[in-house]
Design a protein around this nucleic acid. Structure first.
Lengths: 131, 131
DNA sequence: CTTGACGTTGACGTAAACGTAAAGCAATAC
DNA sequence: GTATTGCTTTACGTTTACGTCAACGTCAAG
């Protein structure tokens, strides 16, 4: 059964920038750092589905506060060859570190949300008292 | 009934820096930005419980990826006078914005952790196949 | 064929978050 | 006394993550 997905869709840097709501300078900056590497048609950059996936990962990483260099190592991690046993074990180790980091963030996040809740209740109580 | 807590404990900048595992330069930088404002004994800085609380908030904000300026507005928010009704309503509005932001982060975080889980399973499957 | 839209590569500027001396006061240690 | 330790300010340096020109190539439209 042949694949039905047409993966030949391409986009220009302007289209990509608009879709992700960043400037083309930003897109090129990510390329300079090796976070994406679009094809070239002559001198122009051509972006494919795969590049969009990477951009989504990058922007989410940014929203989470990761530096771009770290984001690059994470993305690379997802694409390192996993042929040899030693490589797999290395990747699994890295996954562990990532998880530890993310779980710390979730604890911080929960704490912040909890305090926010308590603070809101306290404010609402003050407001009621003013009625 | 008198308060039993002794709130006269104080620390020097070096002690504070060590306890929070940052440099004294960092602590002073936060002071320059108005995130903390320790007392002065002559020329020296004196840190109290309240400053520690703020530092905890700052560092958690940093782990969550917030810029220091935004952290300052958050901390200030927790300390704005809430006497007048308009002030309370402003604060409640800010709380809402904060919550929206934090909840977006949690979605990002959950997505990242989910992908990490799936990636780990895929790696473990590869590893089993190598046995 | 020139204009305009869109693409390209430098290269320099900037804001944030500190790092890193440099140079000086102030109290305790010997 | 002086020497060391700890704190201070002043001030320039650095890294990250882009912004902002400048100067040029290219292709379809008028």
């Amino acid at each position: 059964m042949a694949s039905r997905v047409k993966d030949d869709e391409t986009w220009t840097i302007r289209e990509i920038a608009q879709e992700f709501d960043v400037t083309h300078r930003t897109v090129r900056h990510y390329e300079e750092l090796g976070l994406i590497s679009p094809e070239r048609h002559g001198t122009s950059r051509i972006y494919r589905r795969r590049d969009k996936t990477r951009l989504n990962l990058i922007l989410r990483g940014k929203r989470l506060g990761f530096p771009l260099e770290e984001i690059r190592t994470i993305i690379d991690l997802y694409e390192t060859p996993r042929g040899r046993r030693s490589q797999l074990e290395y990747v699994l180790g890295q996954i562990g570190e990532r998880r530890t980091d993310l779980e710390q963030r979730r604890r911080d996040l929960d704490a912040a949300l909890g305090e926010l809740d308590r603070f809101e209740e306290s404010c609402r109580a003050d407001l009621d008292r003013l009625r």
